[in-house]
């Protein structure tokens, strides 16, 4: 069952259309990565999903129900924002108390375990915590409420590698143990590549693509090829080509799909070089974005 469904969502902020007909689907106990350039609308979308923002058009369904004013569903939803808006004058223990008394499914045992892992001093004032510590606190609180769905907005940004690893481990443990559904936005494609099974790419408020990482990696491929007498026209004009670059005789071709047919086609011309090259998620993202004109020219100063 789809735990999160965003349907035909439009969102305006201050007259600007930030989200344009957005459709997202997240399956149960999936770890879904939302990626996109700065300003693409990631945070806005996540805020719509947790009902902090209301859409001008479309709807958000979480656990099969409309999220709008839905206390029942929200009590099962954990949200770690990009910036933690805790009451600054509160001590940590007061914030914990607040969550403890607000969320019906608060698990004290779990909180105690997490407290030991994160080693956060309950007596400290929230205002004295670093960004990293605030993120950890948010994670602790939002996991202790036994969420069925966990939404994280760039949770590892600004964290040192040790804490970053801890955060990812805890998310993975959560999914393994409780089949929690996770939606995480991040720039760190290297991390997402490891832990996500699906990704959605958002660009200028529109969803560019949504797919399983496995399928994406098997469709988008890189090939290095060289021909004795130059590249044949029908190879060059293959409509699945995302990008083609030449260095001397060697052509580097990024393919959007239909790799097997392309290879067969190339072999007919007896290439002097034919190699498939691995592509990371980051590379795939860069080339897909290049396909929609989000690209940087080579800079020589």
């Amino acid at each position: 069952m789809k735990m999160i469904r965003v349907l035909n969502l439009d969102k305006y902020l201050g007259g600007d259309k930030i989200l344009d007909n957005v459709n997202i689907n997240v399956e149960k106990s999936s770890i879904y990565g939302l990626i996109g350039p700065n300003g693409a609308g990631k945070t806005t979308l996540l805020k719509n999903i947790v009902d902090i923002y209301r859409p001008e058009k479309g709807e958000v369904l979480v656990l099969g129900e409309n999220i709008k004013d839905n206390k029942k569903i929200k009590s099962q939803l954990g949200y770690i924002a990009d910036y933690q808006y805790f009451y600054p004058n509160f001590k940590v223990e007061q914030m914990v108390d607040f969550y403890r008394n607000t969320y019906p499914l608060w698990e004290e045992k779990k909180y105690i375990k997490l407290k030991r892992i994160f080693k956060l001093d309950e007596k400290k004032k929230i205002s004295s915590l670093s960004k990293g510590m605030k993120t950890q606190l948010s994670l602790m609180l939002n996991l202790s409420i036994s969420p069925k769905v966990l939404i994280l907005d760039e949770p590892t940004s600004g964290l040192d590698p040790v804490i970053k690893r801890k955060v990812l481990d805890i998310i993975i443990d959560e999914v393994s143990t409780n089949e929690t559904t996770v939606l995480i936005s991040s720039h760190h494609l290297g991390e997402l590549e490891r832990i996500c099974d699906h990704i959605g790419i958002i660009h200028e408020g529109k969803i560019l693509l949504e797919d399983s990482i496995e399928k994406l990696k098997s469709n988008v491929r890189k090939v290095q090829v060289a021909f004795k007498d130059g590249i044949p026209e029908d190879i060059k004009n293959n409509r699945d080509i995302l990008k083609i670059e030449s260095r001397g005789r060697v052509y580097e071709i990024i393919l959007n799909d239909h790799m097997d047919e392309f290879i067969s086609q190339i072999k007919q011309y007896n290439p002097i070089l034919l190699e498939t090259i691995d592509m990371s998620l980051e590379e795939i993202f860069i080339y897909k974005m290049g396909g929609v004109g989000y690209v940087f020219e080579d800079i020589t100063i």
């Binding site: 770890i31 690893r165 990812l168 481990d169 993975i172 443990d173 999914v175 490891r194 832990i195």
Partner: peptide, 15 residues
């Protein structure tokens, strides 16, 4: 177990 290995490798348990 699936859970243990996911944790050791920091990988998605579904994988």
């Amino acid at each position: 177990s699936v859970r243990e290995l996911a944790k050791i490798l920091t990988l998605n348990p579904n994988t």
